[in-house]
């Protein structure tokens, strides 16, 4: 069930430099959301910005959902200016959740930058299911690092200001070669170059890997056809990130 609701901002926090967490009160969305899903949010009543913006559901806390975003343009600047009590228009939950059940013992979570967004929600669920979790987080610099509500976190920064100096996938490869984990499954989210590296590593190592993708979408529900990702095989060339994703098995898609 997809809901379209005007909801109230009940929490707002700058969690790192330019990175905000916003909590929205919606019992309906909170109750039906699953980790990996997203909501499409309209936060202006004018035509600037005109379209909704998609955000991963970062966490569910009782009847509220939390979004995590960084200020990158006009839209997100406006969203960051929202205060407790303001209302925004939410469409969701949308998309296919992560496959969290089944044949793995250790969830290896790999996030780059704001790619951490869907993982607090997933981590909570995995902990309830008594899965082991190893989390790898990459950021440009320590000031933009967010690791809250994640479990067993190792950090990589591009400038070496915290943790391993290098990419998060390099950090992951070193770790897994020195400390192999039992029956792993990887969950990745982040910039495309990082996801390509992660996908290549997962396929080489023969580890199942799900990726959460971003897409330039308008509607979020399959109407606009704006968010194609190339499929690795099958009759159709593209899948739509909004309704066939945003989570995909890395073998099913080709990242460009």
């Amino acid at each position: 069930m997809i809901f379209q609701r005007l909801v109230t901002v009940v929490g707002r926090e700058e969690v790192a430099e330019g990175i905000f967490a916003l909590s929205l009160e919606s019992a309906e969305v909170a109750n039906s959301a699953r980790p990996g899903q997203f909501i499409n949010v309209r936060f202006s009543e004018t035509a600037l910005p005109l379209l909704r913006r998609p955000f991963s559901i970062s966490r569910v806390d009782g009847s509220s959902i939390e979004l995590l975003f960084n200020v990158i343009g006009q839209g997100t600047r406006l969203l960051a200016s929202k205060r407790i009590g303001d209302r925004v228009d939410v469409l969701g939950p949308l998309g296919i959740p992560f496959g969290h059940q089944g044949g793995f013992d250790t969830a290896v979570i790999v996030a780059g930058g704001l790619g951490i967004a869907p993982f607090p929600f997933l981590t909570g669920l995995l902990k309830r299911e008594k899965k082991r979790i190893a989390t790898f987080v990459g950021a440009k610099t320590a000031r933009q690092l967010v690791t809250r509500r994640l479990d067993d976190v190792q950090v990589a920064t591009d400038d070496g200001s915290e943790g391993f100096r290098g990419t998060v996938v390099e950090l992951l490869e070193r770790n897994l070669s020195s400390n192999p984990v039992m029956r792993p499954k990887m969950f990745g989210c982040g910039p495309t170059p990082m996801l390509k590296a992660l996908s290549a590593f997962a396929q080489e190592a023969g580890i199942e890997c799900e990726l959460s993708l971003e897409g330039d979408m308008a509607c979020g529900v399959g109407l606009c056809q704006g968010c194609p990702v190339e499929r690795a095989n099958g009759r159709r060339k593209y899948a739509l990130v909004c309704v066939e994703g945003p989570t995909f098995n890395c073998k099913e898609i080709v990242l460009r």
Partner: peptide, 24 residues
Amino acid sequence: PRDGNPPRRIVETPSGMLNSIGLA
């Protein structure tokens, strides 16, 4: 069936959007 155009297919512009879906 038509696959449509490669991404990027949608861009928001002031008070509007540009699309190039390509009749997918």
